[in-house]
Write a protein that binds this DNA or RNA. Structure first.
Lengths: 138, 138
DNA sequence: ATTGTTTTGGTACTTTAGTATGAGTGTTTC
DNA sequence: GAAACACTCATACTAAAGTACCAAAACAAT
């Protein structure tokens, strides 16, 4: 925050300096108008780049949008998707069963169906494929 | 690509127009120098923002930098890390063994050590933890 | 009300994963 | 050259995952 204030103060000061310089240059007729305008343009272009870069850096992990259409296309049901999410969190079948208040048998059924629909041999492969298909947030 | 060429052409044209306008304004003494400079500054500031936005949009999935220090901190060896990468791709122990030209026993040993070092109960949990620690590229 | 789908759950089974333990080989380091 | 470590591999075991098959209850849609 202090850094931001400092940067903006510096910007304002440099803008004022540019004003004075351009006036002086014009009065003295030393520098052509093209050079003055070009330098100003370049300076503020770079400032625009810099500011935007700082802003996008803070965004960082913009959550990947989940492809709901793909989920539907694959025929993955609501409950199956819930199980898939729990799998990706690293839970065991028993833990998922407890979290969703059903039996482990039920989870096994869901997992088997998921593996079929995702064309995966293992749950780890299912995680990988699901992320590739963007049906799981990374 | 065509779009980029078009945008830059438009930029150059607008720059030339600004030159002429500023000269004319100066000659006619209509507009104060502050307004001319400010408008140029604003225009190029916005252009800087726009260009950078377009550039960062194309990056999109900027690969998350791997935290090598963390790998060292956890005491994960080179070979163990290779196994971890294969696990995250969804391979079985046998498949990893074939990929790395060693026996399945060796992979099991590596996996066991990995689970200890990552404080995970299952390989799926290891994947999750490793990604949280930014040891694995997402 | 019947039909189709989802969700649930069970049994029995095979396969894979993971643990525990020991041990041989090679490399590095002091 | 001994100690420490990484890598390898094996056996024997337990635990978890996954398959196959079946079936009942819940539910929405026609």
């Amino acid at each position: 925050m202090k850094k931001t204030v400092f940067v903006f103060s510096a910007l304002i000061v440099s803008l004022l300096i540019l004003f004075q310089l351009s006036k002086y240059a014009y009065a003295a007729n030393d520098i052509s108008v093209e050079i003055v305008i070009s330098s100003i343009a370049i300076v503020f272009f770079v400032i625009g780049l810099y500011i935007n870069r700082k802003a996008t850096q803070n965004q960082k992990h913009l959550p990947v949008p989940i492809n709901f259409k793909k989920i539907e296309q694959l025929g993955i049901s609501k409950r199956e998707y819930e199980v898939l999410v729990q799998i990706s969190k690293g839970l065991s079948n028993k833990e998922i069963a407890d979290a969703l208040f059903v039996s482990e048998s039920t989870i096994k059924t869901h997992v088997s169906n998921l593996l079929l629909k995702l064309d995966a041999k293992r749950r780890t492969q299912a995680i990988q494929k699901a992320k590739d298909l963007q049906i799981l947030a990374i």
